[in-house]
């Protein structure tokens, strides 16, 4: 029996699936921040081997398609013998990918702190950890907020690719609803609008934060 889909049915199904997009974005962003922080400290630290590892990590994840990383996580975890659900591979790949970009963004922020700050704090007999904790990171954090919020948009958009390894989120739901209704124009239009509703506030707040920060900069 054929079932009739009203516009409301389409929208309702998409919105229900959008919850998974939001959840996956949050998990990847939080996870990516933690791993990214670890990569950041290796990248800016003194140990040459850790520094090289971090450089290689960033180059690898920024130089290959996220889709390939998802495939490799999906089939790679399978090789180890784990029966991988799509959400696990999706969260793992997105976390590692997010970490690479955040580490690189944050490195820029740490390096933007002028050398004098390092010298001043070391002349106060602060150790490396103290310098980081009390002088460098608080200032770097302030510069880091706008680009970090801006990057969260890329994470939300990145989750769309997880539909390809079979995770049912907004994009996958769009394909499924299209197959049931044969109305790709309307369905993908709605899907795009929902993504826009998720991403645009983030983009906008990133811009506003950046402007505010610039004002602060001009005044001192």
């Amino acid at each position: 029996m054929m079932m009739e889909f009203t516009t409301w049915d389409i929208l309702r199904n998409l919105l229900l699936a959008a919850r998974w997009t939001v959840l996956l974005s949050l998990v990847s962003f939080v996870g990516g921040s933690l791993v990214g922080l670890a990569i950041l400290f290796m990248r800016i630290g003194k140990n040459v081997w850790l520094k090289r590892f971090a450089q290689g990590y960033i180059e690898l994840f920024q130089g290959t398609p996220l889709l390939m990383q998802l495939f490799l996580a999906f089939f790679g975890l399978g090789l180890v013998g784990v029966d991988v659900p799509a959400w696990l591979a999706a969260a793992l790949a997105l976390t590692l990918w997010t970490a690479a970009f955040l580490a690189e963004i944050w490195r820029g922020c740490v390096e933007a702190i002028v050398r004098g700050q390092w010298e001043a704090s070391s002349s106060l007999a602060m150790g490396y950890v103290q310098q980081m904790r009390y002088v460098i990171l608080p200032q770097a954090l302030k510069i880091a907020v706008p680009p970090t919020v801006g990057f969260s948009v890329q994470v939300v958009k990145g989750t769309a690719l997880t539909s390809i390894i079979g995770f049912v989120e907004l994009s996958k739901a769009g394909t499924m609803v299209t197959n049931a209704t044969f109305q790709p124009f309307i369905v993908y239009g709605f899907v795009a609008l929902i993504y826009f509703a998720l991403c645009w506030p983030l983009s906008k707040s990133s811009q506003i934060l950046e402007r505010k920060l610039n004002v602060a900069h001009r005044n001192h």
Partner: peptide, 23 residues
């Protein structure tokens, strides 16, 4: 610009390939 930058490439692709033919 805002529409493109705030939606995934995959959806833009699907919209162009599957959606536009209906127009």
């Amino acid at each position: 610009v805002e529409m493109i930058r705030n939606t995934p490439f995959l959806i833009q692709l699907f919209f162009i390939f599957f959606g536009l033919p209906s127009l």
